[in-house]
């Protein structure tokens, strides 16, 4: 039995036994190479689940949908390691209760897809894997290319990209970490971040979002994929993740009991740049 069939029947069993009220997985998409999030509430619907190497979205986003978990019932969700990492972060930020999430874990290695052992978040110890996780080579190369630029070149690079931003907030909406009920860009007293999508306002928005994700990003790349104007958002999030690892030896989502990196400190944190 392939993993797809295995998970279909497992999802169906979870639903029919009443253990979970909902299974969030993937279904066929509008084209042959697309997969779309699929929500199954009945064992029959669970038969529509698809699980293959095209299932790259991070479905943990849906776990923070307002009101979804407020009834205390459980939800099962198909997650790759980056999704599991997101769940760890969400638990550590009190957005999820560990016992409300059943994880149907899987991993994709090129075209191969394998099932992950364990159903509860505590079954997954991702620490080492995440630490040694490197982004796809093209991202890494691009990030290095930017690091090698001088500030003016870097600015031009981002100016070109951010000038395209239309503030559709797709990056925010697909991001599991963007669960705020009111985003800072929607705060108008005072209006720290302008809603206008001129380049300066776009810099503001993208910098603020990157800062808010620093030390919290699960590196799932959802923002990057969602961006309709192809801004390489992943690069800046990758850079932030690298910074917190290098500076504070902190890797977001290693486990679910971390303290937020920017709400904690060590007395001997590096401060070479401070006069």
């Amino acid at each position: 039995m392939g993993i797809q069939e295995q998970y279909r029947s497992e999802a169906a069993a979870l639903l029919s036994s009443g253990e979970v009220k909902l299974v969030i997985g993937f279904g066929e998409g509008s084209t042959a190479d697309r997969r779309r999030p699929l929500f199954a509430r009945t064992p029959e619907e669970a038969q529509k689940f698809v699980l293959d190497a095209a299932c790259i979205a991070n479905l943990s986003t849906y776990l923070v949908t307002e009101g979804l978990l407020s009834d205390g019932k459980k939800v099962a969700v198909f997650l790759k390691p980056d999704g599991i990492r997101s769940v760890n972060i969400l638990i550590s930020e009190a957005q999820l209760k560990p016992d409300q999430v059943v994880i149907l874990g899987y991993a994709i290695d090129k075209a191969e897809i394998t099932a992950l052992e364990g159903r509860n978040i505590s079954d997954f110890s991702l620490g080492e894997e995440i630490r040694s996780h490197t982004p796809p080579p093209h991202i890494l190369q691009e990030a290095e290319r930017i690091e090698e630029m001088n500030p003016a070149e870097r600015f031009e690079f981002w100016k070109a990209h951010f000038s395209k931003c239309i503030k559709c907030y797709a990056c925010r909406q697909v991001c599991p970490m963007c669960y705020c009920r009111r985003c800072i860009v929607d705060v108008n007293q005072p209006q720290w971040v302008s809603t206008s999508s001129h380049t300066l306002g776009n810099f503001e928005w993208n910098i603020v979002r990157a800062f808010h994700l620093a030390g919290r990003c699960a590196a799932c790349g959802a923002c990057d994929r969602a961006c309709p104007v192809n801004i390489p958002l992943r690069l800046v999030n990758y850079r932030m993740g690298k910074e917190v690892i290098d500076a504070f030896d902190y890797c977001a989502g290693e486990n679910s009991s971390q303290k937020p990196v920017l709400a904690s400190f060590k007395q001997d944190d590096p401060e070479t740049f401070i006069l």
Binding site: L38, F39, T61, I166, A170, R172, T195, S196
Partner: peptide
């Protein structure tokens, strides 16, 4: 599954809603 972003509206050739700020 709608995540509530505005990419469909902002890339739509006919969507015309706006805000004044």
């Amino acid at each position: 599954r709608c995540v509530g972003c505005g990419s469909c509206t902002f890339l739509c050739p006919t969507c015309h809603c706006f805000d004044i700020q």
